[in-house]
Design a protein around this nucleic acid. Structure first.
Lengths: 229, 229
DNA sequence: TGAATAGTGTCTATTAGACACTATCGA
DNA sequence: TCGATAGTGTCTAATAGACACTATTCA
């Protein structure tokens, strides 16, 4: 019997498409849980990985070819039951990326599934996904986390749709903007970016058949003064 | 060279005393980091531990003799550098308990130290403590977490002092009570405890030389509608 | 010039917080 | 009855949110 548990990293990679949060899953070629859908994951390589985040990025790169815009540790799932091979430790992560960037990645091994109504999954991956979605919804209510579900430059309306889809609730534009507390920092070249600014306004616009909308970029993961959703 | 990392559990056990958050530390008898102050921690025993929380409770019991009122996973610290013996994984936890219960525990191996102004600690324990304190302060701003720094029964004034000490800011009584959103649920025997109630009023009082104060008990870890501190 | 969406200002309803008042104990 | 603390009500200042108005593009 082993005296030290297996240590692996799992990643719940989420994206927003057609108004729904979706998660990257693949079908396992080998046992245990052969032919079950599963999250991307892999063992820590003590000879290669310089940190646990490095493991997560390496696993994602190898298994899906994708590089997320955002990655954070979720929680560690561990115990004697979750893997039939014995006591195991899975350091679970949440990753976010815009759906547009998925199209570029070729490898068709992974597919995105709505986080609601998933079939049975391998290991405790269903629980990991539930907890990841809860974390994202919760954190979205008081932070700029949803910005990482969009491309680097986005309009305020796109951001508003993103929040609305996460919460399943629509708000008026002025409500949304006052919630963000946007002080439209005209981040002109030369001026220093104010740390307090949640979003940075660029001088680029997205054209259409209407009035062009200003493009913004997120400054950093910033927290609102109050939760508001 | 090992091909799988060591897996241990560390616990940041916090209590509130003399207006300061304090953390349980002991001086290491053996290397690495001999004679350094360190958190209680220990390896996962795959033959004994039924879960990672079980490991945390076992380690706390063995090393300090204490049973916390509250325990939650904080974050997993891992990498090749944190332990000179090689790649290691430490699943860090936060635990809370009232200072009054510490006096009962005999074993004098552990001592409580203010979380500010600590000397050098073993491993990455200083970082674990910083992150634990940040988690507690943050979660206190929108939940009843501080209740677990008090005995099971407490007065509203005691709870107010607890919040004030965590945030280093005083408020008026009515402000505090409106923040909690207390609907004084006179939890008379027979009536069902309303899930929505944040605190449950008992029919016990704490006497003194003034008007006696009603004793409350926390219902569950409940979140406020809005962050407010 | 009209349709469509971007962006802003104003007004109101809700809520947070300071203050004052009442209540209840022991001395 | 007085001092001390518990508990509650009221009034005001701050804020969130709905609505309406203006701005700017293309067809």
């Amino acid at each position: 019997m082993r005296t030290t548990p297996n240590v692996s990293v799992d990643v719940v990679l989420l994206s927003l498409h057609q108004g729904k949060l979706q998660v990257a899953l693949h079908r396992r070629a080998r046992g245990p849980f052969q032919d079950c859908l599963a999250l991307p994951g892999g063992y820590v390589h003590v000879d290669k990985d310089g940190s646990i985040e490095a493991t997560a990025y390496r696993v994602l790169k190898q298994k899906t070819g994708l590089q997320p815009r955002y990655l954070e540790q979720l929680r560690t799932f561990a115990g004697p039951q979750r893997d039939p091979r014995g006591w195991s430790v899975a350091i679970s992560h949440v990753a976010l990326m815009p759906y547009e960037e998925l199209r570029q990645a070729g490898d068709e091994v992974f597919h995105f599934h709505d986080v609601d109504g998933l079939p049975d999954l391998a290991f405790d991956h269903a629980e990991q996904i539930r907890e990841a979605v809860r974390r994202v919804c919760n954190k979205a209510s008081y932070s700029t986390l949803p910005c990482w579900l969009l491309p680097e430059l986005f309009t305020l309306t796109q951001l508003q749709r993103t929040y609305e889809q996460i919460f399943g609730e629509t708000v008026s534009r002025s409500t949304f903007r006052s919630r963000l507390g946007i002080k439209v920092a005209e981040a002109h070249p030369g001026e220093s970016a104010d740390q307090a600014d949640i979003l940075l306004a660029t001088d680029q616009f997205q054209g259409g058949s209407q009035r062009p909308a200003r493009l913004f970029r997120v400054n950093q993961l910033s927290l609102f003064k109050r939760a508001c959703w």
